[in-house]
């Protein structure tokens, strides 16, 4: 029983649920709720992206593109054509999944720098289409989005959104943890260590890679749709290359191949700019210093490095108290 609690699939999930439930006691006004919601949305994208980067070992520098497609798909269908937001979101998600599936196969044949470049290109193409097709997207000035509604009921207010995003994040993490522990997840990890080795033992590498690519794109697209409805406005900034880099940074910062690391990375990097406004003109410098410091002292990312540190300490204490060693 205790062992089950200590495993990430139950213990970690419970801890995350507790954090989500208890957090509102610290959130004194809607500005703090807003930050918490942004953390949640970014975390959903990062949990998906982490499956691709951390577990399957494939890089994507175009994930803001999928996020943006989700946001703009929902925005255009719901606001311009008056679709019910839920239907708009589901249609958009399916379309993004189909797109990821179509481009995934050729793109994921590439490795290393070439894969990075291909995904980068994909992201930039999506960005360019969104900025130039201003008849649909509003171009560089952006587009207003109607609030999310189900039937007659409209979702408004930060508190309500907080619980929705919190529940979805929990669901996303649960999904990711289960996937990792499934045969497909083990296949992915095998792929990460050696693609040739994985193929030798009978893993269909191409299929696994495309699958995880599609899953991570779907996570990003859903988060994008929700973000669009929540903030009521979309601009191409969220689709831009820099946002892709931000997402990858969150994953690496929190710790690759750690689902909770992705959540921590998203939380830290979303709140940090808000905390650092105290430094005024030196904000970006301090931000850079924090990033560098973390990477130097916690090279495997925050969560895995700290986990390892704890582990070493526990081992040290155990060996000292044990007279036989």
């Amino acid at each position: 029983m205790l062992q089950r609690l200590a495993s990430p699939r139950t213990g970690g999930l419970l801890a995350l649920a507790a954090a989500i439930v208890l957090l509102p006691f610290l959130l004194s006004n809607s500005y703090f709720y807003d930050i918490a919601i942004l953390v949640g949305l970014n975390a959903i994208v990062c949990v998906g992206l982490n499956l691709l980067i951390g577990y399957a070992g494939q890089i994507s520098l175009g994930h803001a593109g999928f996020f943006g497609l989700g946001a703009y798909g929902s925005a255009i269908l719901a606001s311009r054509y008056g679709w019910p937001p839920l239907a708009a979101m589901l249609t958009t998600t399916l379309a993004v999944a189909a797109l990821a599936f179509l481009v995934g196969r050729p793109i994921l044949r590439l490795k290393g720098h070439y894969l990075a470049m291909a995904t980068l290109g994909l992201g930039i193409i999506i960005f360019m289409v969104i900025t130039t097709e201003d008849k649909f997207t509003g171009g560089p000035d952006g587009l207003s989005v109607v609030p999310f509604s189900i039937g007659e009921y409209t979702l408004r207010g930060e508190r309500l959104w907080y619980w929705i995003v919190g529940a979805l994040l929990l669901f996303a993490v649960w999904l990711a943890l289960n996937l990792i522990e499934s045969p497909a997840g083990r296949a992915l990890r095998a792929l990460h260590s050696s693609e040739v080795g994985a193929e030798v033992v009978g893993i269909d590498a191409a299929r696994q890679k495309v699958m995880v690519f599609v899953i991570s794109a779907v996570f990003a697209s859903v988060a994008g749709s929700l973000a669009a409805h929540y903030s009521g406005f979309v601009t191409p900034g969220k689709v831009a290359f820099f946002h892709s880099i931000e997402l990858v940074t969150m994953v690496v910062f929190g710790g690759m191949a750690s689902t909770f690391g992705a959540v921590v990375g998203a939380a830290v990097l979303t709140t940090l700019p808000q905390l650092l406004t105290v430094f005024k003109d030196y904000e970006m410098m301090v931000f850079g210093a924090v990033m560098m410091g973390t990477m130097i002292f916690l090279p495997r990312g925050v969560v895995p490095s700290l986990g390892r540190l704890l582990e070493l300490r526990r081992q040290g204490a155990a060996s000292r108290s044990d007279p036989r060693t």
Binding site: N29, S30, Y31, D34, I35, L38, G142, A227, S231, F233, V234, T235, G237, K238, P273, Q274
Partner: peptide, 13 residues
């Protein structure tokens, strides 16, 4: 735009 929105919330709240 996203940052602008968050900062305006901060200014107000």
């Amino acid at each position: 735009a996203e940052k602008a929105r968050t900062f305006v919330k901060r200014l107000i709240e």
